[in-house]
Simulated scan of single mutants.
Amino acid sequence: MKNFILISIFLFGTILTTAQTSFRLDTIYANDQKNVALFFPEPIRQGITGSENFVFTYNRDKGQYFGLLQAKPGKESNLLVVNKNGSVFSYIVKYRKKLDRLNYFIPTSKSIGNEKPIVADSTTIVKREDTIDNRTYYYNEFCSYLNNRKQRIGRLKKRNEGVILSVENIVFDKEELYFVIQVENKSSLDYDLNFLKLSVETRKKGKKKSLQRLYQEPVFKYNLPSKVKENETVRLVYILPKFSIGNDRRAVIELNEKNGERNLKLKVSHRFINNPN
């Protein structure tokens, strides 16, 4: 299981705390010559850096209390760590050729919040208008992160008269699959979108070969446009409940033009669906 976590957890954790406090993040320095060890009060469940020139390693199988940070020269970034009990820790990370400190023992008091709601008083009444849809918030933030990430799963493209449909990435997170889709319009005409659908096709064997198609309804759509202007590229994300398919089945993404014939069908093999990032 490959699970991505992003900067939104910082926002998510702080929103769910009872006090709306502004945190000033501490800075941790690292380089590519030495390991900088970070010791946490609880075992590490998840940890990620915001830039590829920083690497944070920890034991994903056994919940150990420490992780190791290394860095290559480049711009500063951030480190986000979630402990087993849900405590969230966030730091600014920078590259420094000479290190003054190699070990950080991090107390519980340095936590910026918890990824789950903390109820201070069971009698507290929360007004409906003050609550937020945390799931929608998470979807939006994670989709934004994936859209900006340069990771790709393979060369999955289909072209038709200057319109290019591609699947840039397929990511598994929290029992759901995120399809990062790109629509590029290199033609001289705007592309008015009628629909974009994802289905699973089953190829029936026998003398009378036929296809059985089952449409998959997304639980969330991110940045779905109604129009892709000429020379414009749009990236969007479809979130679907986790599923897997056999080698006799394939996923199909259909892009249909409104009042036009520049329609595309992109077939995605079972190996991409069953082995997401």
Score class of each variant (00 low, 15 high):
S244N: 10
F10T: 05
Y95I: 10
F39E: 08
R250K: 12
E261K: 08
L38V: 07
N78A: 04
Y238W: 09
P276N: 03
F4N: 00
R60A: 06
F179T: 07
N256E: 06
S269M: 01
V126C: 10
K227T: 15
N185W: 02
V36P: 06
R152F: 08
K97D: 13
K97P: 06
S226I: 09
E232M: 05
V119C: 00
L16Q: 10
Q182F: 07
T57G: 12
S87L: 15
V167S: 04
I132W: 00
I92H: 10
N263E: 05
V163E: 01
V237M: 02
N185G: 06
D133G: 06
K229Y: 05
V81Y: 08
E201V: 11
P73T: 13
D173P: 01
N259L: 08
N140G: 00
I15C: 08
L236P: 09
R24Y: 11
T108K: 06
S166Q: 04
F272A: 03
I106N: 04
L6N: 07
Y91E: 07
L38S: 03
N231G: 04
K197Q: 11
G162E: 05
S188G: 05
I92C: 04
N185Q: 03
T21G: 02
K98I: 11
I44N: 07
K258M: 11
N53Q: 15
D61V: 08
T27Q: 03
Y178R: 02
I164T: 15
V93Q: 06
I164Q: 06
D248K: 04
K242S: 01
Q182I: 08
S166H: 12
R135K: 12
M1S: 05
L266W: 04
D121Y: 08
T202V: 07
H270L: 03
N147G: 04
K84T: 13
T18K: 13
V93M: 02
P73Y: 14
P241Y: 05
N3P: 00
T57I: 06
N231W: 09
E261Q: 09
S111V: 02
R101T: 15
